[in-house]
C-alpha cells in the first residue's frame, strides 16, 4: 500500500468520487442545486467518511466476517446521527435545505464502498488519509457541480448575484433533469480527458476507465447478474 500522501491525493483527482468512481450519485444529484448545499453536504460526508474509515480500521480485526456489513452500517449510521444533530444545532438552515439527504448519507455507497474496499484492509492512519482524500474530493465535486448549476441555473454563486437583474436564468439546470444531464456531461468530459491523455501519451487506454462504481460491491454484483441474465436470454432464444 502507498504512503499516507498518495492515499490522500488519489481521492482528489485520480479516483475522485463521484466523477471517476461513480459513487454516491443520489446526494450528488439531489443537493447540488446550489454551491452552498454542495459544500455543506460534502462537509458532512467528510466527517462521516473520515471517522467511519478510522473506526472501521480500528475494529477491523475483531469484526466477524458474517456480520461485517452490519457492523459497518452500524458505525456509519451512528456517525450520521451525530452529524444530523450537530447540523441541527449549528447549521439549521442547511439542515432544512438538505432535508432527507442527511440521514441518507448512511446509504451513500461511498461510505460502505470505502469501508469495504479500503478501511477493512488497512491501518487507521492510511484509512484516515483515504477517507479525508475521498471526502474532500467528493466535496470538491459537489461544490463544482453545485456552482455550475447555481451560476447558470439561478445566476448566483453562494447566494451572491452574478449577472445583475437582466440575466435570465437557465432554470432547467436547477431542476431534476438538469442535474442528470449536467452530471452526465461532466462524466463524459472526464472520459474524454482520459481518452485524450492516453492518446497523447501513446498509451493503451485502461479498458475499465468508465466501468463505473469500482469501489461499490453492489454494482459489481449487478453487472455479473446482468451478464448472466443476458446469457440466459440468448440461450433461451437459441
Amino acid at each position: 500500500m502507498g504512503s499516507v500522501a498518495s492515499e490522500f491525493t488519489k481521492g482528489l483527482w485520480k479516483e475522485i468520487p463521484p466523477f471517476r468512481l461513480v459513487l454516491g450519485l443520489c446526494p450528488t444529484l439531489a443537493v447540488t442545486t446550489s454551491a452552498e448545499n454542495g459544500l455543506g453536504m460534502g462537509a458532512a460526508v467528510i466527517f462521516v467518511l473520515a471517522l467511519s474509515n478510522v473506526l472501521i480500521s480500528l475494529v477491523r480485526s475483531i469484526i466477524p466476517k458474517k456480520v461485517r456489513i452490519a457492523c459497518f452500517i452500524a458505525i456509519a449510521a451512528s456517525l450520521v446521527v451525530a452529524v444530523e444533530m450537530l447540523m441541527q444545532a449549528f447549521a439549521y438552515p442547511l439542515y432544512q435545505q438538505l432535508g432527507i439527504f442527511v440521514p441518507l448519507i448512511v446509504v451513500n455507497c461511498i461510505i460502505l464502498g470505502r469501508a469495504e474496499a479500503f478501511a477493512a484492509k488497512n491501518p487507521p492512519h492510511l484509512a484516515l488519509a483515504d477517507g479525508l482524500g475521498m471526502g474532500i474530493g467528493f466535496t470538491l465535486s459537489l461544490t463544482f457541480l453545485g456552482s455550475l448549476r447555481e451560476i447558470f441555473g439561478a445566476g448566483t454563486w453562494f447566494g451572491h448575484s452574478l449577472f445583475g437583474p437582466n440575466y435570465h436564468p437557465f432554470s432547467f439546470l436547477v431542476q431534476a433533469p438538469g442535474a442528470f444531464v449536467c452530471l452526465g456531461i461532466i462524466l463524459a468530459g472526464m472520459n474524454f480527458l482520459s481518452i485524450w491523455q492516453a492518446k497523447r501519451k501513446g498509451l493503451e487506454l485502461d479498458p475499465n476507465f468508465d466501468a463505473g462504481c469500482k469501489g461499490c460491491m453492489a454494482c459489481k454484483k449487478m453487472d455479473e447478474i446482468a451478464a448472466q441474465k443476458r446469457l440466459e436470454r440468448l440461450g433461451a432464444k437459441a
Binding site: 455479473e224 451478464a227 448472466q228 446469457l231 440468448l234 440461450g235
Partner: peptide, 13 residues
C-alpha cells in the same frame, strides 16, 4: 471466466 461458451449461463450453471 463466465464466458458462456459452453452454452450455459456462467461456469456455475
Amino acid at each position: 471466466a463466465n464466458c458462456g461458451g459452453c452454452g450455459f449461463a456462467g461456469c456455475e450453471a
